[in-house]
Amino acid sequence: MLVWEFLLGLAAVGAGFGLAQLRRQVPVKPLQSFRKSQQLIAGWVASERDMLYFLELQPTPRLRYACPPLDRLLGDQPCTEKLDDAGLFLSLLHPEDRGRIAGIDAHSFDFNQPLIYRIRNHEGCYVWYEEYRTPVYHQGELYAVQGILRNVHERILEQTRMQYRVSHDGMTGLHNREHYEELVKRYNEEECLPLALILCDMDNLKRVNDTYGHQRGDLYIQEAARLLKEFAAENVIISRIGGDEFSVLVLDGTQAQAESLIRSIRQRIAAYPSEEIGFSMDMSVGCAWTTQSIGRMEELFLEADQEMYRQKSSKKEVQLQALTAAAVDGDDVR
């Protein structure tokens, strides 16, 4: 694909509207103003990470300038479409960005804000770019569009990595307590929907730490997290909210769905292979459900927490009875 073919499509789609709309909506930037600074700007952005273009639209579309990195972005892709076909640009956009860029509205578009999107390069890889564009006018008529594209791929990836670290637990890879509390605040104050809160507390972690050491205890936590992660979905958000405690938020679901999920979790725990950690795994589980989340999240937590500890206490009572019975049998033998 030729550079100027790509830019014609980019100018048409990225602006998101016709020339007449641009004339009405955008403050005039005289052509003379651009010509005075054209050489300065060209030298300023002609780097490995920046791409500048100046596309004349009157009397016929003509690319006046495009710095070399744009050639390296596109490579030698063949193109047979018309020069003014916006589909040239759209075809290179990432599918998740395509609708957003194509749907830009002239009445709400802010030229002071950058457009950020992914473009498929000649190697077939999507690269993040940030674009600033400015319409250029001459004698009251839209004459050209000038723009700067900057490769921000590493910056976006680093931001993504930082966001992940901020919202995820380092030991287990699950969402962390901070992220859980943000969700609780959102659904308690801003967004109302039916949801279930499931709390899972690992049984016998202290005994594992005391008997096998804290390294084995950490493995116990990680294996529990891996098991719970099997149930994660777009509307099922799993977080580690304490040392051995996990939360499962089931968003926009029914009470029957939440109960079915709990049964599946319990079955998975019961069938978990003990050879993975050297002993069997067990968790106590409590659940609370509501049709309307706003104003109810604290109450839900208390309900689920109480049910979870009732289950944990019941298990301890059964264990105590078993130990007592074993002790009595031992005395009888003697």
Rank of each mutant, 00 (worst) to 15 (best):
E5P: 02
L8S: 06
L10S: 06
Q25G: 00
V28P: 00
V28N: 00
L31D: 05
Q32L: 11
Q39K: 12
A46G: 10
E48W: 08
R49A: 12
Y53Q: 02
E56Y: 00
R64Q: 04
Y65G: 01
A66V: 02
P69A: 01
D76Q: 11
C79G: 12
F89E: 00
L92N: 02
P95M: 01
P95D: 01
D97A: 08
R98H: 08
R100H: 14
A102R: 05
D105T: 08
H107V: 07
S108R: 15
P114L: 14
I116M: 12
N121P: 08
H122R: 14
V127Y: 09
R133F: 07
P135D: 01
Q139N: 13
Y143D: 02
A144D: 04
G147Q: 00
I148V: 12
L149A: 06
N151L: 04
I156F: 14
L157H: 08
E158T: 15
Y164N: 14
R165T: 02
R177C: 11
E178P: 04
E178I: 14
Y180A: 15
Y180D: 13
E181I: 04
L183W: 15
V184T: 01
V184K: 06
A196Y: 03
L199K: 15
L199F: 09
K206R: 08
K206P: 03
D210C: 05
D218Q: 13
L219V: 10
L227R: 04
L227F: 07
L228I: 13
E234V: 15
R240S: 03
I241H: 06
D244I: 08
Q255W: 07
A258W: 14
E259G: 12
S260P: 03
R263T: 10
S264I: 03
E276S: 11
S280M: 09
M281D: 01
M283H: 06
S284Y: 14
G295S: 05
R296N: 13
M297P: 06
E298K: 12
E303F: 12
E307F: 06
E307W: 05
M308L: 09
R334K: 07
